[in-house]
């Protein structure tokens, strides 16, 4: 199969999946009464005064397929309903909370990927040496750690014991005032970048201090996952014939490991990068909850405990769609890198 044909086929495959994703969310929605469901259509709190009108307008008492039609039309118009916990429409709540979460992801993702690849291949290259045992133990303990517990323990030590070294939340009260003052322009709402653009060192330092613990919490579990995978995939690559050839022709060990083995070992790691995304999203909800770090995950948690369905389902839908596209990108990269995927057709 040509690469182009593969891409077209893969793109077409997205349509039924996205349709299914909306059906699943809509199915969950059906577990609620029309009055509760009305929250997903309301764009202004005043409308809650006249729920009957909302039910009438969006046909919430009509057959399911009619409702689905109304619902999906609203989704395409960017209306996901009203989020009670933050008193604003779901769409704008997401846009407002996204930068905080992005800030976490920007720091955690490279740490997870490059750290995991580096440590995993180090361990494999020194199999059964001290460094291998240490990373293996670290990986299996890290993989077993409850994220929420790790976060709280870090908080206990670095906020409690070291008297406020790395505090929870996103900014201190003082810096929060600075950020929201007239003199400070919020270009991107990513505090780090805004602080640099405004040339404000104190805000920069403060937001970095607030980021340390959440980033560590988010990183450890996922790093352990990549590390384990990279180690076993690297071990397999190192046992292959081409490694023997490379060594036999006198290449130095460094080149063998980093050029011949690692590049081939990276392919399985790439295939699971979709899972890393899922791990990050799962982790973000817990991490932001623990540190009271007001991002998407914190908002999802608030919505969940307050049984605010428009928030929860909006968040789930957003993540489902995002995940589908992440997997698309991963698959296309995979096909680009590994010709077996597109030439051999099915890989079972």
């Amino acid at each position: 199969m040509e690469l182009r044909a593969y891409i077209v086929r893969r793109l077409l495959l997205i349509i039924p999946v996205l349709f299914g994703v909306t059906l699943l969310i809509f199915g969950l929605l059906q577990l609620f009464s029309p009055v509760e469901r009305a929250a997903l259509y309301v764009t202004d709190p005043k409308q809650f005064a006249n729920i009957a009108e909302v039910i009438e307008k969006y046909g919430l008492d009509q057959p399911v397929w009619v409702q689905y039609g109304h619902w999906i039309t609203e989704i395409f118009q960017g209306n996901l309903g009203w989020s009670k916990v933050v008193s604003q429409p779901v769409t704008s709540a997401m846009l407002n909370f996204l930068p905080a979460t992005l800030e976490l992801a920007i720091f955690a993702t490279p740490l997870i990927i490059f750290g995991g690849i580096f440590l995993g291949s180090k361990a494999a290259a020194h199999k059964d040496k001290a460094i291998d045992h240490a990373t293996r133990l670290g990986a299996i303990v890290g993989w077993s750690l409850p994220t929420f517990w790790l976060g709280l323990m870090l908080l206990m030590v670095f906020y409690g014991l070291f008297s406020g070294l790395f505090p929870p939340e996103r900014l201190s009260t003082e810096m929060n005032i600075v950020v929201h003052s007239e003199a400070f322009t919020q270009y991107t709402k990513l505090h780090i970048i805004d602080a640099i653009l405004n040339g404000n060192g104190r805000v920069l330092l403060d937001s970095l201090r607030h980021l340390v613990l959440p980033v560590i919490t988010l990183t450890v579990v996922n790093l352990a996952f990549i590390m384990r995978l990279m180690r076993s995939s690297m071990l397999e690559a190192l046992g292959k014939g081409y490694i023997l050839t490379a060594r036999a022709k006198g290449l130095d060990e460094n080149t063998v490991v980093s050029k011949h083995a690692r590049r081939n070992a990276l392919i399985p790691v790439l295939t699971v990068s979709g899972y890393i995304f899922a791990g990050l999203v799962n982790g973000v909800v817990i991490t932001e909850t623990i540190f009271n770090y007001k991002g998407l995950g914190w908002w999802a948690w608030q919505s969940a405990v307050n049984l605010d369905i428009s928030g929860v389902l909006g968040f789930a839908l957003f993540n489902g769609v995002l995940f589908v596209f992440t997997n698309l990108v991963v698959d296309l990269l995979y096909a680009r890198i590994d010709p077996r995927v597109r030439l051999g057709g099915k890989v079972t």
């Binding site: 039924p16 999946v17 299914g20 994703v21 059906l23 699943l24 969310i25 969950l28 929605l29 577990l31 609620f32 995304f277 899922a278 791990g279 999203v281 799962n282 909800v285 817990i286 999802a300 969940a304 049984l307 369905i309 929860v312 389902l313 968040f315 789930a316 993540n319 489902g320 769609v321 995940f323 589908v324 997997n327």
Partner: peptide
């Protein structure tokens, strides 16, 4: 059908179902 379910991070889907 599995594709559809796998389109969600487990914790997020489980959270939505539990709330529902």
């Amino acid at each position: 059908i599995t594709d559809i379910f796998l389109a969600f991070p487990i914790l997020i889907l489980a959270m939505a179902i539990t709330v529902a």
